[in-house]
Amino acid sequence: MTDFWDELRATTQARIGLGRAGDGMPTSRVLEFRLAHAVARDAVHDPLDVDALVGELVRSGVCAGIEDDAGTGAVRAPVIEGEPGRARLGAPVVVTSRAANRAEYLRRPDRGRLPRDLAGLPATGADVGFVLADGLSARALQTHGPALLKALVEALPATFTLAPPVIATQARVGLGDHIGAALGVKTVLVLIGERPGLSVADSLGVYLTHHPEPGRPDSDRNCVSNIHSPGGLPYEAAARVIGGLIAGARQLGRSGVALKDTSREAAIAASTPDVALP
């Protein structure tokens, strides 16, 4: 019996074949679950290490380094065209929402959707902008954000202009509408930590909004979720689907329910968000 389920466990992280103690679960399974829940709860409350994330983005070669603008701390980065040998993206800019801390973020999602101050963002008019948001799992962004961003940049046509990435803390998906509008981008991608589950506490989702502007309903977005490794959607596969969705949105002139993923990437797909976004 153990062998039978072991083979199937290679196909899913779901808790299958747990055995029984009467109608309940065996003690070991109950305690495993309790531990996983404790770890996930801790993940919700871990803050994003912004300096470490910036360092990783620069080290990976996807972003230019941050330059201090005349010692004011404000950061300006030009739109950088794709050129061999250069970082494809400008230096990251850091913003935060109006949620002052984690406790407020959890109970007031409305404040997580509003920016505190976007004065540091350049108006780029670029084709695509990227928001790196902590969402409900900063660990997800910390772990998978740089590699996914790199894969996304590589999956987009070299002719596209790309805005510098914006790191957003205490951020909800809707904050991307404000950031996208301030950057003046045609399409904004919000890479955001998803709500931690028991098996996976570091899963990233990407929300695509064409012509971002404050007030966009969620039905105007498309999302690709469960991006993590191992066991989730790989970075390159996610990037290909998103690349296809961007092309579709540009052709259609909009994103959301009307835009379907027809890229047929194995069993991978995009969806319109359902009840709750991070």
């Binding site: 196909t11 899913t12 299958i16 979720s225 959607l233 993923d261 047929r264 991978i268």
Partner: peptide, 29 residues
């Protein structure tokens, strides 16, 4: 295969009489 494995597990434990229903990770037709 993963969905089939979880379906088997549920059927063996007497579940699925209202519906066997999957939330797809995406909604590509």
């Amino acid at each position: 295969r993963g969905i089939a494995a979880a379906t088997l597990d549920g059927l063996l434990l007497g579940c699925g009489d209202a519906v066997i229903g999957v939330n797809p990770a995406g909604d590509s037709p």
